[in-house]
């Protein structure tokens, strides 16, 4: 089973929940899919055993074959190609790697070359499978990295807990879409609620069941619960606001190491997710 841990808003506690959930469930596989700034390793100090490079295509145009018919530029939904006055311009950062231009070119003038956009690291941490992606700085899209990470999950292994990136962009949609359950970690603030709603919309659109963890729970938590009630999405766990939780985090200490009493709550959370996925 694959569980995506997402949030919409950044800094709500995705990593706190993902790491401690993985540490509380036997044989878990922890996947850090926030490839722009992976941070689960700070809490788990994994040993990396292999590194898989991840590539993205770049269209390369052979101008001796090209007759500037523009079929490639017209086909490209992302405007990564332009044909102006007997020149073909390629904008690699806009290319999504579909290779459509290669196929539509009637003169076979385009070939797909590759450039490395990052890598996936696979190793072990405290008896768990540990997978993390790293997108190279300046590369705009982590989608290919996230897909490679998910492909590396051992299908015969235990549950995969996937720490998604913040926001609701393509890489997050891919993470949620490939999971059986989406755990949404939020905080009871207007910003938390605003971005939570967007993340809820994504999960709903993709047909992935979701549940909510309210972190830094305090007096104003009703705004989250009201929204959950309205959408019939369960609140599965509340983590109260506690300065000591933040202190443990700042030392790189997982929640369940600093406060072992949370282990049982996270196990019940996992059992509840399992129950909801199975039925």
């Amino acid at each position: 089973m694959k569980i995506a841990v997402a949030s919409g808003k950044g800094g709500t506690g995705k990593t706190t929940v993902a790491v401690s959930l993985a540490l509380s469930v036997p044989d878990a596989q922890l996947v850090d899919a926030d490839a722009e700034e992976p941070n689960c390793h700070l809490f788990l100090r994994p040993s990396i055993q292999r590194t898989i490079p991840v590539y993205m295509m770049v269209p390369h145009v052979d101008l001796t074959k090209c007759d500037f018919c523009r079929k490639c530029a017209d086909f490209c939904a992302f405007n990564a190609l332009a044909v102006v006055k007997e020149q073909v311009l390629v904008f690699p950062e806009l290319c999504h790697g579909c290779t459509g231009c290669v196929y539509v070119c009637p003169r076979e003038a385009i070939v797909a070359r590759q450039r490395q956009i990052g890598e996936v690291e696979i190793g072990a941490a405290r008896g768990m499978v540990f997978i993390q992606g790293r997108l190279k700085p300046t590369e705009p899209s982590a989608v290919r990295i996230v897909r490679e990470e998910i492909a590396q999950i051992d299908p015969k292994g235990g549950p995969a807990i996937i720490d998604a990136s913040p926001g609701t962009a393509c890489a997050v949609q891919d993470t949620i879409g490939q999971s059986q359950f989406c755990l949404l970690v939020t905080e009871p603030t207007p910003f938390g609620l605003h971005d939570l709603k967007m993340a809820m919309d994504v999960a709903q659109e993709l047909g992935v069941p979701s549940g909510v963890v309210i972190n830094r729970n305090g007096a104003r938590d009703s705004i989250i619960e009201d929204e959950c009630r309205k959408r019939n999405i369960p609140v599965l766990l509340k983590i109260p606001f506690d300065r000591r939780v933040a202190e443990a985090y700042s030392r790189g200490q997982p929640l369940v190491d600093a406060f072992p009493e949370w282990r049982e709550s996270l196990r019940s959370l996992y059992r509840e997710i399992e129950r909801r996925v199975m039925t």
């Binding site: 939904a77 992302f78 405007n79 332009a82 044909v83 102006v84 904008f91």
Partner: peptide, 15 residues
């Protein structure tokens, strides 16, 4: 309202 590459498309148009 292009998702991306608006500048490229508009350039192509004026050219």
């Amino acid at each position: 309202a292009a998702g991306g590459g608006a500048g490229i498309q508009t350039s192509q148009l004026v050219v």
